[in-house]
């Protein structure tokens, strides 16, 4: 009898705990946290621009390195092809980014995957607050398509403290998404960042921020391989051309003669090679000196963006 009581209490409390978690997630699904609203508003605005583009197009997909690194106006001029900068945030992960763009990809279109090095470490189960907030918020459709075990695991990792932001959003429901988007980063109609004038960072800051996915040891997670395969399946089915390229980043002095950096870059190159995806240029081509950077190791200023884009155009013209 005593053990039955214990088992009943434990089961009941476990059930209630899951119920509380489910309520919290549902609250967030209906009242997204500000971070999720901010990211989604950026995606929405870029999708709106994308929708307006008629005819064949080339879309650059990635995190902020794309937003702050590729000038689609220049691409349009030089290649005489519609271009869209779909650079958002690295933390959103490749499946959210491509999943949104894929709705607007038509046969004959080209998608250039320009992933930050962090993306090569993508592992659904150890993702950041932004990703979890999006998956259990505005991107619930992507979430629902995940395997059951992954969904359960992500739910367990859903940060409960997001509930206070959900309450905050519930109270502050009068915000204008467009305002949030505009005040964050300034984008033009092709999705290029326009505020990256001059330089707000120093060489010391850049030197002090070597990229962990380059200098530390790791392997590519199975999740990323599956996602990449799904992207390629989609591309084959819809006759969309897929290319990969390297993210623009600062040429840190610690990368020179660093065996780990070389090993990691080889791993990333093999990743694309194994998938059968053409890669534009070499990682070193996208590594630039400090004068071309705006405010971080991934964010180029106007001068850097122009240089990087011209180089990328040359590479694109070579393969097309």
């Amino acid at each position: 009898m005593h053990y039955i009581k214990i088992i009943t209490i434990v089961s009941l409390s476990l059930l209630i705990s899951f119920f509380i978690l489910e309520i919290t997630i549902n609250l967030h699904r209906n009242n997204h946290s500000p971070g999720a609203i901010f990211s989604q508003s950026m995606i929405d605005n870029k999708l709106e621009c994308l929708q307006k583009i008629e005819g064949n197009k080339i879309i650059f997909i990635g995190g902020s390195n794309v937003a702050y690194g590729i000038d689609c106006k220049l691409v349009r001029e030089k290649m005489n092809l519609n271009a869209m900068n779909f650079g958002c945030m690295v933390g959103l992960g490749p499946e959210i980014l491509f999943g949104n763009v894929s709705k607007f990809l038509k046969p004959g279109d080209t998608a250039v995957l320009c992933w930050e090095y962090e993306t090569y470490r993508f592992d659904r189960r150890s993702q950041n607050l932004n990703y979890l907030g999006m998956m259990m918020g505005p991107q619930k459709d992507v979430f629902e398509k995940l395997p059951l075990l992954d969904r359960f695991y992500l739910k367990l990792h859903f940060p409960l403290n997001l509930v206070r932001y959900s309450i905050f959003s519930l109270v502050n429901s009068t915000h204008d998404l467009n305002d949030i988007y505009k005040c964050g980063w300034s984008f033009d109609e092709l999705g290029n960042v326009t505020s990256n004038l001059g330089t707000t960072t120093s060489k010391t800051d850049l030197e002090n921020s070597p990229l962990a996915p380059l200098i530390s040891e790791h392997e590519i997670h199975q999740d990323l391989i599956l996602i990449a395969n799904k992207i390629l399946d989609f591309a084959n089915k819809h006759k969309v051309k897929i290319y990969a390229t390297w993210p623009n980043t600062y040429r840190n002095s610690s990368y020179n003669c660093n065996r780990q950096v070389a090993t990691n870059l080889e791993i990333y190159k093999s990743f694309w090679k194994n998938l059968g995806v053409d890669v534009l240029g070499e990682p070193e081509d996208a590594m630039l000196p400090e004068q071309y950077f705006y405010d971080s190791v991934y964010h180029l200023n106007r001068k850097g963006t122009e240089l990087r884009t011209l180089k990328l155009i040359d590479e694109l013209l070579l393969v097309q």
Partner: peptide, 22 residues
């Protein structure tokens, strides 16, 4: 900060206003 500029909608990133009611 960009996270706190949005017409007062997003909380101040230094003093997290959403914790205040607690």
């Amino acid at each position: 900060n960009e996270n706190i500029r949005c017409n007062g909608f997003l909380p101040n990133s230094e003093i997290d206003l959403t914790v205040l009611p607690f």
